[in-house]
Design a protein around this nucleic acid. Sequence first.
DNA 1: ACAGATTACGTCAGCGGCTGACAAAACACA
DNA 2: TGTGTTTTGTCAGCCGCTGACGTAATCTGT
Lengths: 215, 215
Amino acid sequence: MSTTSAEPGERVGLRERKKARMRESLMEAALHLFHENGYQRTTTEEIASRVGVSQRTFFRYFTSKEDVVLEAVEDVDEHLCSALLARPADEPPFTALRNAILDHWGYLEQEALHLRGSAMGLVTESPELIEVNVRYCHRRQNRLARAVGERTGVDPDADPRPGLLAAVFLAALNTGHQAWCESGSRSTEDLVRAFLHRLDLVPETVACPWGAPRG
Amino acid sequence: MSTTSAEPGERVGLRERKKARMRESLMEAALHLFHENGYQRTTTEEIASRVGVSQRTFFRYFTSKEDVVLEAVEDVDEHLCSALLARPADEPPFTALRNAILDHWGYLEQEALHLRGSAMGLVTESPELIEVNVRYCHRRQNRLARAVGERTGVDPDADPRPGLLAAVFLAALNTGHQAWCESGSRSTEDLVRAFLHRLDLVPETVACPWGAPRG
DNA sequence: ACAGATTACGTCAGCGGCTGACAAAACACA
DNA sequence: TGTGTTTTGTCAGCCGCTGACGTAATCTGT
């Protein structure tokens, strides 16, 4: 009761701080190596030894190699959710989501300079990671759906609409991202344009008989 | 020019037939074992030895363990596409898709008795495979988009709507499937109900301000 | 400051997915 | 039947990932 007398309620301790630092270091090393050499060509062994620990330790902090990326992306998602909640309350849900991604993107571009924030950029750059992105879309969907539910006052567990909206939204985003990849463009502005184009097209795509005046 | 003088245009040959048979055998063995012992607990070694070949041979026919399931599911997708094309031409695209899955489901239930046809049922039964399903939704999307494009006379490469429609459709399906899993139901009828519920909800979910009369 | 309980780490050994290389067997064609 | 091509088995090995166990660092109570 002398060396480190921290606040009584806050039990931080040197142990947990070290743990947090280790986690940060591992993630940073991983993202750095992914960025430099590509995701596939980076081994967990390399990540670990870059931090000076054993491979086993890496797997004590992350359940898989993919998990590193996922965790980084989730930080980004979190910001998208708050961007959604910050939109004016009178915007319809789908519109709010559409506009939130615009606000959100500004944040991404700012953070893109930092390794941590550029995880999403990493995902958009290396095709192997698109898989990871898609694979975990369930988690992302649920998170987004909760935010939508919170905003609209609808219970996401009882009403399917928040989940559905999130799913449709992400589907439109994925489609836009796919088209952007195939176009060969590297410009993030084009990516946002592709996003908005798809999002604005959704209502008529599911509603009308397309092109033909009626049918 | 004596032993096997087949049709000039058709070069089948004993070799290719053996190859096709081997592929069939491997897939059947794999699906059988997946069904019996679960996907994770089945090793590629077991699959190979059930057919009496080496593990290496398995990987000459399928690029990965997941690939077996994917290929099986793609056969099912193909039928969904023809179900779509068989719908009356005056149905709007999204409606046609909605109705196609009803027709399609009848086929699935019939084929569910056979291992080959039940791959989709396998996917809906073992949670590990949902991942595979989701992971490859890009391929499924593209295939569906092509069918939608063919039906509507819209070029899927130039116009984003077919791809978008397919993506939204599959997103609604995935959401329904997810809800069905969480509900704990094993009834396929409930699954179809969940599908239709989501599909019918999509237009208003993306269009209106929900619940509140106007906004 | 010290002893004992926790917790984190390294080491090792091993499984399973997956691949390249090479030689042997199966096949096609003449 | 002999020759050239394709398919297969064997082997060796990388990589992601995990369990077990011993050791060292940290925390706790005195």
